[in-house]
Simulated assay, not measured.
Amino acid sequence: MRGQILGVDMRTGEGQLAGEDGRRYSFRPDDWAHRGEPQIGLPVDFNPEADRAHSIFPVPVAPAAAAVPATAAPPVYAVAYPPGRYEPTTDRNKIVAALLAFFLGVLGIHRFYLGRTGSGIVMLVLTITVVGMLITGPWAIIDCIRYLVMTDRDFARRYGS
């Protein structure tokens, strides 16, 4: 019979489910015949016996994407973040990165701080020569300005861990 989980006591693992016949059935943890935990609202298949449910399995749900017709518009790959949800995060600070770029930028320290070790090594090696310092100096100033102008969301998306 099919039904739906109504509630589960997390301490004991006992719960109730509603069958498609309109009756309620109780179950114990050993009645749950699937890995994982039963969740409220989960559609299930079970064997009813008096007022008990045995051999409870979650009902597989077909993916909705399979029902999309072939003539549908191609998928959009732009990432949209609703406010306050799924925001990219980083443990790095853009102000610290900008200060490192401004004061120690020719050595590439800000690049190491942001996890860009390849370009940090290039800047460090270039600094050994006078010509290299003429390249890494403007590079560091441009990085400093870029970090300060960049929004927090863009900074976290680009340099997040």
Results as ranks from 00 to 15, higher is better:
residue 111 R to Y: 09
residue 123 M to E: 09
residue 139 W to D: 01
residue 65 A to S: 15
residue 112 F to M: 03
residue 154 D to E: 14
residue 86 Y to P: 04
residue 2 R to H: 13
residue 23 R to C: 05
residue 153 R to W: 12
residue 79 V to W: 14
residue 67 A to C: 09
residue 32 W to F: 10
residue 114 L to D: 02
residue 6 L to Y: 01
residue 20 E to V: 14
residue 117 T to A: 14
residue 101 A to V: 05
residue 83 P to M: 14
residue 98 A to F: 00
residue 144 C to T: 10
residue 3 G to L: 04
residue 56 I to W: 07
residue 46 F to L: 01
residue 149 V to N: 09
residue 146 R to V: 11
residue 73 A to S: 12
residue 54 H to N: 13
residue 142 I to T: 13
residue 69 P to E: 03
residue 136 T to A: 01
residue 142 I to C: 07
residue 44 V to H: 00
residue 95 I to L: 14
residue 101 A to D: 00
residue 111 R to C: 08
residue 130 V to P: 06
residue 8 V to Q: 06
residue 131 V to S: 03
residue 84 G to L: 07
residue 96 V to A: 12
residue 23 R to I: 01
residue 40 I to W: 04
residue 9 D to H: 08
residue 26 S to Y: 11
residue 37 E to N: 06
residue 9 D to F: 04
residue 145 I to P: 02
residue 139 W to T: 08
residue 139 W to P: 01
residue 151 T to I: 09
residue 30 D to E: 15
residue 3 G to R: 03
residue 16 Q to C: 07
residue 83 P to S: 13
residue 91 D to K: 12
residue 66 A to Y: 13
residue 77 Y to Q: 10
residue 135 I to H: 03
residue 108 G to Q: 03
residue 121 I to N: 04
residue 80 A to F: 11
residue 79 V to E: 12
residue 29 P to S: 08
residue 28 R to F: 12
residue 135 I to W: 11
residue 112 F to D: 02
residue 101 A to G: 10
residue 58 P to T: 00
residue 42 L to V: 06
residue 93 N to S: 08
